[in-house]
């Protein structure tokens, strides 16, 4: 086990009439280098779970484990842990406060007490990683970038800590098609080339579904399904009952299968769907 939870329970406002169980007995584990999705209806506990994974929230009961050891224990003292597990909030650019892209990204490395040459190096590396030329962007005002660029700067700010795990709460909110695609290309590269473990909570499976190794499904604070992506996405009926939908392409494949056509439904990209429909003819006469 690399990162996961053991009977994690979280109660907001415990001991008051407003006490709400946001998570109940949630147990799962992910391997190093996995690309995992957390899905579930609004209010199912996704954001609560994410905040536990880098120790922003502390369990009411149960444990969060990193490398098999409890988060918040001596070995994984929280401040040090948060350098290794980076968390990117929803619409992270709303938290910008610096006058330049450079200062925005340098904030965390400076807080680590690194000397200015190392800070400089980390800022440049982080910008290059997200595909922005350091020379061109370092002096720009972060508020004057496009929506897609702002999102990338916010991610670069987390990458400057050189984390091993990257967690995103709904990474593509408000982005257009091309920025969504660029963002997922970046996440794929971070996951496959740099070996980062990536965990994403999202309502928009369009691009995410094709990349996921494993999927956790939350409903009303409970983990109701967990496993390899293909197994979860094939349970269309159960997902429907939770108010969740599959990517539009996958929906088309399911509708074709329902009409009796011999197609595989675990298809998440246009090109896969095209290939699958082309191959149909062969299946009529095996």
């Amino acid at each position: 086990m690399f990162i996961g939870t053991e009977k994690l329970t979280h109660t907001y406002m415990p001991g008051t009439p407003f006490a709400t169980e946001a998570l109940q007995d949630v147990s799962f584990n992910l391997q190093q280098g996995e690309f995992a999705l957390i899905i579930g209806p609004s209010g199912s506990g996704k954001s609560t779970l994410i905040q536990h994974l880098n120790g922003l929230l502390r369990p009411t009961s149960g444990r969060v484990l990193f490398e098999g050891i409890a988060v918040g224990s001596n070995k994984h003292e929280l401040l040090r842990l948060r350098r290794r597990i980076g968390l990117v909030f929803q619409i992270p650019e709303e938290q910008f406060f610096s006058e330049s892209v450079f200062d925005e990204i340098a904030f965390a490395p400076r807080n680590l007490g690194l000397d200015e040459s190392e800070v400089e190096k980390r800022v440049n590396e982080s910008l290059e990683k997200v595909g922005m030329q350091a020379e061109k962007f370092r002096n720009r005002h972060p508020f004057r970038l496009s929506a897609g660029q702002k999102r990338l700067v916010a991610i670069a700010a987390v990458l400057s800590l050189q984390p091993e795990v990257l967690i995103f709460d709904e990474p593509t909110v408000g982005l257009d098609a091309i920025s969504r695609k660029n963002l997922y290309n970046l996440l794929t590269a971070l996951n496959q080339k740099d070996g980062l473990t990536v965990i994403i909570s999202t309502h928009h499976l369009d691009q995410a579904a094709a990349l996921a190794d494993s999927v956790l499904v939350l409903n009303q604070g409970r983990l109701v399904m967990a496993g390899p992506a293909e197994n979860i996405f094939n349970k269309r009926k159960q997902l429907y009952e939770l108010g969740l939908t599959l990517p539009p392409v996958t929906e088309i494949m399911h509708e074709l299968a329902e009409k009796g056509l011999p197609v595989k439904t675990a298809v998440y990209t246009l090109q896969e769907a095209r290939g699958e429909i082309k191959n149909m003819k062969r299946r009529y006469k095996p």
């Binding site: 579930g40 209806p41 609004s42 929803q90 709904e170 909110v173 408000g174 309502h203 108010g243 969740l244 939908t245």
Partner: peptide, 10 residues
Amino acid sequence: EPTAMLDPAG
């Protein structure tokens, strides 16, 4: 973008 932050049912 009234639905950007909502789940599929919402």
